[in-house]
Design a protein around this nucleic acid. Structure first.
Lengths: 210, 210
DNA sequence: TTAAAATAGATATAAATATATCTTAATTTA
DNA sequence: TAAATTAAGATATATTTATATCTATTTTAA
């Protein structure tokens, strides 16, 4: 039942998820003109265990110096390269409600190689306009607009009721990665990767733990 | 280093995170007037293992019938009660940019007991207005506005640069749970729960796995 | 120049989480 | 009515993930 695509890489998903935090710390260190940084320092800034940081960083291929740490520039490049954040990723936003709009404007994306090429919506008062510089097209034109453009990631922020239907349209168009912000469990072929961003599940954690 | 608050409950965080999906399926079953539903059916709808579904549901205290399944109404109540979604949670949104606005309007919240009582921002052209029916006050008035109101969850969607500073204000005000949508690692006392909603980490997974 | 300290890297262990197997109970059908 | 089937619940195992321990290396300072 495990999705193959998530297990292709020799790093665990939890490790991959921690790398951006490390990158934050490292970029800040670089801004402060630090030449080297130790796993111990990164760990204490993020309240993690040094062992975990070292093990996580190891997957990027970086080699540190005992008693010194890692070369900051080298480490930054190693993480960015491992995450493919040094390459461009073409993305589309499907559904330009408040959430879609927020994601179009999310600063962490552009800075890390995500290029939102355009957005789609079904509402006539959005079609033809721009949102934060991104052109909005009609959902009906999606297939046509993307016929000559290979999209790496489709960000799905449509209402749950139409999520499956829109997903099928995306699959027909050749999209292989969907970032699902709806509450729907999407049914997709095996070769399509769906990453669910589930606010309800986080809310559940908060509700139970408080 | 582990946060105490997350380990107080006798259910694992992954289990808690799956419960809302089960609830979705069960609510739909209830709408379709189903009287009973089996773990096997829930599992196949969500592409999970039946064993996992059964084990997860068990934490809610529900008892099913062999060869039949669970009583749908009973199961719905058990999950809602376990998640505390049958009680009201007072929340505030701090930072009313696109993301804050999106969260104010997120349908999954109100429906599950989250009551966003008001919002805060520092921008003068937002203060005094309403967003989707929620009043927006100045950040400077936060302490004063909340002095007689116990807030369960603060949703933090301010720019990263001011996240720590605003967090300290929230802590002074007595807030004990913060849902952090910024990229900052927040420094908080031990008795404050922070749940980070990290878009960058999800983007990392997509970038690596595609 | 040598000893001490800090840290990466390797190996080993523990903890958390998921899955498999077995047992029992309820239902259906022969 | 008895056998077959299905699914819950309990127990056991496997897998994944995190943490601990040990070793070797480099730097600093005595």
């Amino acid at each position: 039942m495990k999705n193959k695509k998530f297990s292709q890489i020799d790093a665990s998903v939890p490790t991959i998820r921690r790398l951006p935090s490390y990158l934050n710390v490292i970029r800040r260190a670089l801004n402060n003109n630090l030449k080297v940084i130790s796993g111990t320092v990164i760990a204490s800034e993020l309240e993690l265990e040094p062992i975990q940081v070292r093990k996580d960083l190891a997957v990027t291929g970086i080699v540190g110096k005992p008693r010194v740490g890692y070369d900051v520039k080298e480490l930054k490049n190693a993480i960015e390269s491992f995450l493919n954040w040094d390459k461009q990723h073409k993305a589309i936003v499907v559904g330009t409600g408040n959430l879609g709009t927020a994601l179009i404007g999310y600063p962490g994306f552009k800075q890390n190689g995500m290029n939102i090429v355009c957005a789609f919506d079904s509402s006539v008062d959005k079609i033809g306009k721009q949102i934060l510089g991104v052109e909005v097209y009609g959902l009906k034109d999606l297939k046509d607009k993307l016929k000559n453009e290979k999209i790496d990631i489709a960000i799905l922020t449509v209402p749950s009721e139409v999520a499956q239907q829109v997903t099928e349209l995306l699959i027909e168009t050749g999209v292989k990665s969907i970032w699902n912000f709806t509450n729907e469990k999407l049914k997709v072929p095996e070769d399509v990767l769906v990453l669910r961003e589930d606010l309800s599940s986080s809310y559940a954690v908060l509700s139970v733990c408080q």
